[in-house]
Protein backbone atom coordinates (compact mmCIF):
# COMPACT_ATOMS: atom_id res chain seq x y z
CA UNK A 1 0.00 0.00 0.00
CA UNK A 2 1.41 3.37 -1.03
CA UNK A 3 2.25 5.77 1.78
CA UNK A 4 0.82 9.28 1.76
CA UNK A 5 3.38 11.58 3.37
CA UNK A 6 3.27 15.15 4.71
CA UNK A 7 6.62 16.98 4.81
CA UNK A 8 6.69 20.08 7.05
CA UNK A 9 9.79 22.26 6.72
CA UNK A 10 10.27 25.96 6.09
CA UNK A 11 13.11 25.27 3.67
CA UNK A 12 11.87 24.47 0.14
CA UNK A 13 15.31 23.00 -0.53
CA UNK A 14 14.98 20.56 2.37
CA UNK A 15 11.39 19.61 1.44
CA UNK A 16 12.58 18.86 -2.05
CA UNK A 17 15.54 16.84 -0.75
CA UNK A 18 13.39 14.76 1.61
CA UNK A 19 10.90 14.14 -1.21
CA UNK A 20 13.68 13.00 -3.51
CA UNK A 21 15.08 10.68 -0.83
CA UNK A 22 11.61 9.17 -0.35
CA UNK A 23 11.21 8.68 -4.10
CA UNK A 24 14.58 6.92 -4.29
CA UNK A 25 14.09 4.92 -1.10
CA UNK A 26 12.31 2.02 -2.72
CA UNK A 27 9.28 2.61 -0.48
CA UNK A 28 5.99 2.95 -2.30
CA UNK A 29 5.10 6.62 -1.89
CA UNK A 30 1.60 7.80 -2.80
CA UNK A 31 0.67 11.43 -2.35
CA UNK A 32 3.45 13.72 -1.14
CA UNK A 33 2.12 16.84 0.54
CA UNK A 34 4.26 19.77 1.70
CA UNK A 35 3.87 22.63 4.18
CA UNK A 36 6.21 25.48 5.15
CA UNK A 37 5.16 25.56 8.82
CA UNK A 38 2.91 23.90 11.36
CA UNK A 39 -0.19 26.02 10.75
CA UNK A 40 -0.10 25.30 7.04
CA UNK A 41 0.35 21.61 7.81
CA UNK A 42 -2.72 21.59 10.09
CA UNK A 43 -4.78 23.14 7.27
CA UNK A 44 -3.65 20.35 4.96
CA UNK A 45 -4.52 17.75 7.60
CA UNK A 46 -8.05 19.21 7.80
CA UNK A 47 -8.56 18.21 4.19
CA UNK A 48 -6.28 15.25 3.55
CA UNK A 49 -5.37 12.00 5.28
CA UNK A 50 -1.70 11.04 5.47
CA UNK A 51 0.04 7.90 6.75
CA UNK A 52 3.06 9.64 8.23
CA UNK A 53 4.25 13.19 8.99
CA UNK A 54 7.87 14.34 8.75
CA UNK A 55 8.41 17.67 10.51
CA UNK A 56 11.20 20.13 11.18
CA UNK A 57 11.31 22.01 14.51
CA UNK A 58 12.55 25.52 13.79
CA UNK A 59 9.89 27.09 11.57
CA UNK A 60 8.10 30.46 11.47
CA UNK A 61 4.40 30.94 12.36
CA UNK A 62 4.03 27.58 14.12
CA UNK A 63 7.14 25.65 15.06
CA UNK A 64 7.55 21.89 15.26
CA UNK A 65 6.88 21.67 19.00
CA UNK A 66 3.59 23.56 18.68
CA UNK A 67 2.63 21.54 15.62
CA UNK A 68 3.41 18.22 17.29
CA UNK A 69 1.39 19.23 20.35
CA UNK A 70 -1.56 20.20 18.12
CA UNK A 71 -1.42 16.92 16.18
CA UNK A 72 -1.26 14.81 19.34
CA UNK A 73 -4.23 16.71 20.80
CA UNK A 74 -6.43 15.82 17.85
CA UNK A 75 -8.19 12.49 18.24
CA UNK A 76 -8.52 11.96 14.49
CA UNK A 77 -4.73 12.16 14.07
CA UNK A 78 -3.84 9.95 17.02
CA UNK A 79 -2.73 7.07 14.82
CA UNK A 80 -0.64 9.18 12.43
CA UNK A 81 3.02 8.85 13.45
CA UNK A 82 5.14 12.01 13.49
CA UNK A 83 8.85 11.77 12.75
CA UNK A 84 10.98 14.81 13.58
CA UNK A 85 13.66 15.67 11.01
CA UNK A 86 15.83 18.41 12.45
CA UNK A 87 19.31 19.87 12.68
CA UNK A 88 18.73 20.21 16.42
CA UNK A 89 19.82 16.89 17.82
CA UNK A 90 20.86 17.88 21.31
CA UNK A 91 19.87 15.17 23.75
CA UNK A 92 17.54 17.58 25.53
CA UNK A 93 15.65 18.43 22.34
CA UNK A 94 15.26 14.80 21.25
CA UNK A 95 13.96 13.89 24.71
CA UNK A 96 11.51 16.81 24.65
CA UNK A 97 10.09 16.02 21.21
CA UNK A 98 9.69 12.32 22.03
CA UNK A 99 7.92 13.23 25.28
CA UNK A 100 5.53 15.46 23.31
CA UNK A 101 4.53 12.50 21.16
CA UNK A 102 7.03 12.14 18.29
CA UNK A 103 7.46 8.52 17.25
CA UNK A 104 10.83 8.95 15.57
CA UNK A 105 13.73 11.38 15.23
CA UNK A 106 16.10 11.85 12.32
CA UNK A 107 19.02 14.18 12.75
CA UNK A 108 20.11 16.34 9.81
CA UNK A 109 22.43 15.56 8.11
CA UNK A 110 21.04 12.13 7.33
CA UNK A 111 21.69 9.48 4.74
CA UNK A 112 18.79 8.16 2.61
CA UNK A 113 19.22 4.78 4.33
CA UNK A 114 18.83 6.34 7.77
CA UNK A 115 15.60 8.13 6.86
CA UNK A 116 14.18 5.00 5.27
CA UNK A 117 15.20 2.88 8.26
CA UNK A 118 13.57 5.24 10.75
CA UNK A 119 10.38 5.47 8.66
CA UNK A 120 10.14 1.70 8.42
CA UNK A 121 10.71 1.32 12.16
CA UNK A 122 8.07 3.90 13.02
CA UNK A 123 5.49 2.49 10.62
CA UNK A 124 6.13 -1.05 11.85
CA UNK A 125 5.55 0.07 15.45
CA UNK A 126 2.55 2.26 14.61
CA UNK A 127 0.76 -0.17 12.33
CA UNK A 128 2.06 -3.45 13.71
CA UNK A 129 3.52 -4.46 10.36
CA UNK A 130 0.06 -5.05 8.92
CA UNK A 131 0.62 -2.99 5.77
Amino acid sequence: MALDVLIVDDSPAMRSFIGRVLDLSGMEIGERLEAGHGAEALEILNKSWVDVILTDINMPVMNGEEFLTAVCARGDLRTVPVVVVSTDSTGSRVERMMSLGAKGYVKKPFSPELLRGELERVLEVSHGGNE
Binding site: T87, D88, S89, T90, S92, R93, R96, P109
Partner: peptide
Amino acid sequence: GSVLSRLESGSL
Protein backbone atom coordinates in the same frame (compact mmCIF):
# COMPACT_ATOMS: atom_id res chain seq x y z
CA GLY B 1 22.74 22.42 14.57
CA SER B 2 25.53 19.90 14.28
CA VAL B 3 28.10 22.09 16.08
CA LEU B 4 25.69 22.85 18.94
CA SER B 5 24.72 19.20 19.30
CA ARG B 6 28.36 18.27 19.65
CA LEU B 7 29.22 21.12 22.01
CA GLU B 8 26.20 21.10 24.30
CA SER B 9 24.13 17.97 23.85
CA GLY B 10 22.39 18.44 27.19
CA SER B 11 21.20 21.99 26.50
CA LEU B 12 18.20 23.44 24.69
